[in-house]
């Protein structure tokens, strides 16, 4: 008679078959798998990589894309000191108020402020981008099928459209975007677009990899803690399973 193993098998069957729901991106190919420092059971973030990625975000992506779920204080997790974070924050202006005259005013950002986006609202963003809305990037690697692999594929997937394909105005050909026409111009177009503070060579694949790692962190800042805790919990449970099974067998010896 099948045992609880079958129950787990059912879980696996159902899960594997149905967990990755709607895998079909219709006409776009599956993005190839990249190596990420944070993937797998023992994955962790690489802080140097995250700092480089943040630099790319700030200098390239932030022109159009907000990350409104990130606060400046979160950047301390990337390895910056409190004072460095204060300095980074103070470079931006945020709206505050109303003051005693009833007016809103601008002031330098503080670590406790969220990182301000480039546009005050969606309509302004659309107006500046031919009607297209650059999505918020705080959760982008969790909000797309394929996760970091997909975002990386988009960033590096710009090429000339195949012969005979008619592109709509203000659209760019991207191999991995569903329908192959994306409103975003290639953001990482050439090497050394950004000068890395730590001196790493800024090739396009390097920049794409770094910024996607940063965005993965932005979507899941607790991954390191989660993996660490998970290891301890699962180890504990495996030991508990052993002990409880032995105890069960011992108690049941009388009946069997």
């Amino acid at each position: 008679m099948p045992r609880p193993v079958l129950g787990l098998l059912l879980a696996g069957l159902l899960g594997c078959g149905l967990g990755g729901i709607a895998r079909a991106q219709e006409e776009a190919p599956t993005p190839p798998h990249q190596q990420w420092s944070f993937e797998g059971v023992f994955g962790t973030y690489d802080r140097a990589e995250l700092q480089r990625g943040f630099q790319i975000y700030k200098e390239v992506c932030a022109v159009c894309h907000p990350v409104k779920h990130l606060y400046y204080r979160d950047l301390e997790e990337l390895g910056y000191t409190e004072d460095q974070v204060k300095g980074i924050a103070a470079q931006a202006q945020v709206t505050d108020g109303p003051n005693d005259q009833g007016e809103m005013f601008q002031r330098p950002a503080r670590p406790s402020d969220p990182i301000p986006g480039p546009f005050p609202n969606d309509q302004a963003a659309r107006a500046a981008n031919n009607g297209a809305l650059p999505p918020d990037l705080s959760l982008i690697t969790k909000a797309r099928e394929g996760g970091p692999d997909y975002v990386y594929a988009i960033l590096t997937g710009f090429k000339d459209p195949p012969a005979g394909m008619k592109m709509n105005p203000n659209m760019y050909y991207n191999e991995y975007f569903a329908g192959h026409q994306i409103a975003m111009p290639p953001p990482l177009a050439q090497a050394d677009q950004v000068k890395y503070a730590d001196g790493t060579a800024a090739t396009v694949p390097q920049m794409a990899h770094d910024v996607v790692s940063f965005l993965s962190w932005a979507a899941e800042p607790n991954l390191d803690e989660r993996h660490r805790m998970g290891f301890k919990v699962i180890l504990f449970l495996i030991i508990a399973i052993g002990i409880f099974y032995a105890a069960k067998r011992k108690i049941w010896a009388r009946v069997h």
Partner: peptide, 20 residues
Amino acid sequence: HGGTRRDFLLLTAGALAGVG
């Protein structure tokens, strides 16, 4: 004969449950 081994197992199991 089997008593002390069972007690150890039960004690450990109980302790694990408590700690958990």
